[in-house]
Nucleic acid binder design. Structure first.
Lengths: 345, 345
DNA sequence: CTGAAAGCGCTTACAG
DNA sequence: CTGAAAGCGCTTACAG
C-alpha cells in the first residue's frame, strides 16, 4: 500500500494536479463531470491531501491551541475539567481542532518557550489561555508578533489590538454579593479575597469594598483575608482568620466557590454551623456547590457561554473577519440555596 | 517584521541551509564555533523552523490524537475529565502534544470520517481512544492502514499487530467483588451489569457469574439487570429491578461506580437504607464515591497508571521501539468504606 | 566538516 | 475550463 499523492490522483483521473486541488478545495470552476471523475479516483484511493503540503502552500491549520496554566491538579476539579470540554466542543462545532497543553506555571522559562514554539512552528492558527495573570508578558509578546490570543479572565482596556481577545466575568459580582448579604440582614461581613493578579479577583475585591462602603459598613481589616483561588487556600485562610478574629462575622463573602468549599471545611472543624452561626456566599456556580451541606448560595456563571464567546471571537480573528468585540463580559445569576441565613426573620 | 526562514539564517550566519538544519537538529558534526555563530543568529531572529517544512522532509508531528467517544456530557463527570488531564500530562512528559477530539459516537459516518481524516492528513503520529466497543471496525481499519491506535479498555488477543495497543482493567474484578460480598456474609446478591460491547463490562459480567458459581449461589435472573455504564442507566435499572423483585437482595454488585451512584438514588427514593437493608459494592474508585452518604465501598483503579501505560506504549510504537507489550492489565485495590454491611456480626 | 541539490506535497496566479 | 510552473520551508544522502 504505497502512499498516494495528488500527482497520482491526477494521473489516474487524467487531469493535472491543479484540477485535483480545485476539486479537493471545492472550487466552482470545475465542470461536474470532471469533478465526478476526480472524486471517484479520490474515493477509490482514499486520498486525503497531506496537511503539511497544504500548510506550505499557505493554508491554515484549522487548529487552536488551548493553554491551561494551573499549578493545582486540574484533574480533581470538575469545574475546571469541564472547561476543556466546552472549548473542544465549541471549536469542533466551528470546524476547528484543539491542541491541548497543560502548564504548571508561566514563571518557568521552559514553559514560556513551549507555548511560543507551538505558535512559531505554526502548529496552530491561534490560542486560548486560561489561568493567566492580567499582565502576563507572554500575551503581550504573542500579540506584538501578530499571533492571536484569546484569554479567559483578562482585561486590558488600554490595549486595543484586534488579536488580543478576552472574555470576562461581569465586574459587579462583588458588589452584588454584598448587596445580597445586606438584603438578608447581614452587616458583620467577612471577605475571603483572591489573587489580585487575576482580573476577576481584582474586580471582586473592589466590588466587595465598594459594597461595604455603599451600605455604610465600616471595613474591618481583620475580617478580610487573602485566600487565592483554591479550596486549600480558602480553608487555610478561613481557619487562620477564625482562630484570630476577636469577634466573628455573621456572613463570609467568598471570592469564588472553591474558596467557599475551603471555608466550609474550616467552619466544620471549628464546630461553627452554616448558616446558623455564619452564612457563606460563593461566586462561580461550581457544580459541587449543590452537593454541599448545606448547598451553597452562589452567583452562578454559565461557563459554556464564556468559552463559546472566546472561541468564536478567536476564530473570527483567525479568519480575518472584523466587527467582533475584543472583549465580552458575562453576567451572573444569583442562585439561592441553603448557605445564607435570613437575619430579618 | 518579515518572516524568517532557514535561508535567511544561513545568509546571516554565512553558512548553508544544510548547516542551519544541522544546528537546529543538534547534529554532532558541527564544530562548536560554527554552532555558536549559527545559534546566535537563530536567537537574534527568534527563528523557529516551521513544522510543515519539517514534516514534508519526513519528520514526525510529535503529536498524539486523543479521541474521546461519549454520548453523555463528559463535562459533568470528574472522573472522565481527569482522563484528559492524565493523557495530556503523560504525553507532555514524553515531549508530545495532544490533539483532542470529543465525539458523541462512532455510529455516525461523519465522525468516523473525522477521525480518519485527522490520521490521514498526518496531523498526528498516533492516537489514543477511549469509549470504544471492543470490535469497533474503525480501529481495525486504522490498524490495517499501519496507523497507530492505543485503546483504553480493549482486548483483542486474536490480533497481534504491534500498532494495535491497549490497556485494560484486570479481568478478575467481578469475581473479587462477589468474593468480598460473600466474605461479608452476603448470599442474596444482585448484579447491575454493564454494556457487553465494552471489554471491561464483559469481563466483569463473567466474573460476577463465575463468583456466584464458585460460592454455590444460584443465579437468580430477576436479580441481574443491565445498567449500561452511566448513573442515569444505573438509576433506572435499579428502580425497575427494585419495583419488580419479589424478594430483595442484601447486596448489589455494580458494574461501576457511576452505576452505583444511580443505585444509591433509586434506593433512597424507595426508602431503602444503605447499607442497613441493602449493601452496595462499586468498581472504579470514582472520586465521588468518598463523598457519597454512606461512602461507597469499591474496587479502585489507578487511572493515572492506565493512561501512562497507554501513552507510553503508544509512543514506543510511534518511535519504532520494540519490546513493548501491546496490552497491559491494571489491578484494582479494594477500598472498604461504608456501603457494605457485615452480616456476620 | 560543509554545501549543492533533490525531494517531500500541496496551492494558486498566470496564461491560454 | 485547465495545465505548466513557481513557490512555500525544511532535511538528508551525496559528494567533496
Amino acid at each position: 500500500m504505497k502512499k498516494i499523492n495528488s500527482a497520482e490522483i491526477a494521473r489516474q483521473a487524467g487531469v493535472s494536479r491543479s484540477t485535483v486541488s480545485r476539486v479537493v478545495n471545492s472550487y466552482s470552476n470545475v465542470p461536474s463531470d470532471t469533478r465526478d471523475r476526480v472524486m471517484k479516483v479520490i474515493n477509490e484511493n482514499e486520498y486525503y491531501p497531506l496537511l503539511c503540503g497544504q500548510l506550505l502552500a499557505g493554508k491554515r491549520t484549522g487548529t487552536i491551541g488551548f493553554f491551561w496554566i494551573s499549578d493545582s491538579p486540574i484533574a480533581n476539579d470538575i469545574q475546571s475539567s469541564s472547561f476543556f470540554v466546552h472549548v473542544t466542543e465549541a471549536a469542533t462545532e466551528m470546524g476547528y481542532l484543539v491542541l491541548a497543553c497543560i502548564l504548571k506555571n508561566l514563571s518557568d522559562k521552559d514553559n514560556i518557550e513551549h507555548v511560543k514554539k507551538i505558535y512559531m512552528q505554526e502548529r496552530i492558527d491561534g490560542g486560548i489561555f486560561i489561568g493567566i495573570d492580567n499582565h502576563e508578558p507572554l500575551i503581550d509578546e504573542l500579540v506584538s508578533k501578530n499571533k492571536i490570543a484569546g484569554v479567559f479572565d483578562y482585561h486590558r482596556p488600554e490595549c486595543a489590538e484586534p488579536n488580543r481577545i478576552s472574555v470576562n466575568f461581569e465586574t459587579s459580582t462583588g458588589i452584588k454579593a454584598i448587596d445580597y448579604a445586606v438584603s438578608m440582614g447581614h452587616t458583620k461581613i467577612a471577605i475571603l479575597d483572591g489573587n489580585p493578579e487575576r482580573y476577576s479577583c481584582l474586580t471582586r475585591h473592589e466590588g466587595f469594598l465598594a459594597g461595604l462602603e455603599k451600605h455604610n459598613i465600616p471595613i474591618r481589616k481583620e475580617w478580610i483575608a487573602n485566600a487565592d483561588i483554591t479550596e486549600e487556600h480558602g480553608y487555610k485562610a478561613a481557619l487562620d482568620f477564625l482562630s484570630n478574629a476577636q469577634e466573628l462575622p455573621t456572613c463570609i463573602c467568598c471570592q469564588n466557590d472553591s474558596v467557599a468549599f475551603g471555608a466550609y471545611k474550616a467552619l466544620r472543624e471549628k464546630g461553627i454551623s452554616i448558616p446558623g452561626q455564619i452564612s457563606i456566599i460563593g461566586i462561580d456556580g461550581h457544580f459541587r456547590g449543590q452537593l454541599m451541606n448545606p448547598p451553597l448560595t452562589t452567583f452562578e456563571f454559565n461557563f459554556k457561554k464564556f468559552f463559546r464567546s472566546l472561541v468564536t471571537r478567536t476564530i473570527s480573528a483567525i479568519e480575518g473577519k472584523d466587527g467582533y468585540d475584543t472583549t465580552e463580559f458575562i453576567d451572573s445569576v444569583l442562585v439561592e440555596r441553603g448557605s445564607v441565613l435570613d437575619l430579618r426573620k
